[in-house]
Write a protein that binds this DNA or RNA. Structure first.
Lengths: 177, 177
DNA sequence: GTCTATACTAAGATAGAC
DNA sequence: GTCTATCTTAGTATAGAC
């Protein structure tokens, strides 16, 4: 697993091949089939691992404070997590690996985060349409940060002001139709 | 070119191979080397063509009205263009094709749009940091729309309300630090 | 300009010995 | 569990005939 992550981290998720993984762990490529059923199976294990790690961090960020404070903290944790490792972000939040869809078991982990966020948003007066705007905000900062200033904070530093603006004005008004 | 776009459109940009292009135009793969120097060269031609098309649409959207109206129209044209064809969006706005960077000549076209947008933003009191927020807004709507509701408008319909909110509140206040 | 033939690379996966 | 050997597929690119 860590060899697979290392490759994804260094050269992108698409460069992660079973040959290269085997090379790094000092085995021949066919030997890996003792541990994984296929390459997609390995992706699934990585997906589950990354989601578990994210959930752990969100938990560590705690549940204290108002719903608004909690949402701000949760958003910061998620954004930092995503921006920290572009390959991981690609695996978790985009559907861009040909042939890969997470198994039901792995996806259940991802669901937990979605539930948690939706609940907080609902408490703050944001229904599903506003929640879409929220996800677009996060996704936009994340995409721009990774693409144009990897390792920096040129976009991520706008998270809190944007969320404040969003929470102050979007929940009630501005609903299109 | 149109065969290449058709493949990208149907199966994604990564599925565009010289073999498949040749198949579609009734040639053998080596014959394509009369027309392109390499696969990356073909990507570059596609990049230039798509940028030219986008610029043409932006021009057609006209320059009448206030800076605010112009920015709203330009943003709508760009967002619709990007969402319309995910493969094209990937080629133009993400840097996710291994080994591909646009030639200086092709990139000059992309620069024109950037210039135009920056000028409008500046007229509306948005400096570079606010322009970053603007690009994140567009990128976020675009990414979510393509990933989660392709062909629909679940995210893109929020464009105008979000821009209004952004222009009304972000230019002066909310600047982090 | 187009072809055939081929070199080269590299991937995922399987068979069967040890 | 690990290996060698191999199958199968598919890609980019080049050489040289026509």
């Amino acid at each position: 697993m860590s060899a697979a992550w290392a490759i994804a981290h260094e050269q992108g998720l698409g460069a992660m091949t079973l040959h290269e993984v085997a090379r790094r762990v000092g085995l021949r490529q066919p030997s890996l089939y003792v541990y994984v059923e296929s390459k997609l199976d390995l992706y699934d294990a990585m997906f589950a691992q990354a989601n578990a790690e994210l959930l752990a961090r969100v938990d560590r960020a705690g549940e204290s404070g108002s719903a608004r404070e909690q949402l701000l903290r949760l958003s910061r944790v998620v954004l930092d997590f995503a921006v920290e490792d572009p390959a991981r972000q690609q695996l978790l939040f985009t559907r861009s690996i040909p042939g890969f869809t997470p198994s039901a078991q792995s996806y259940a982990l991802a669901e937990q985060l979605i539930q948690r966020t939706s609940r907080l948003l609902a408490e703050l007066g944001c229904g599903p349409p506003q929640a879409d705007v929220y996800t677009a905000l996060i996704a936009g900062l994340c995409a721009q940060q990774i693409a144009n200033d990897p390792g920096g904070d040129r976009w991520t530093r706008h998270l809190e002001p944007m969320l404040e603006l969003f929470l102050d004005h979007f929940p009630d008004s501005s609903e299109p139709r």
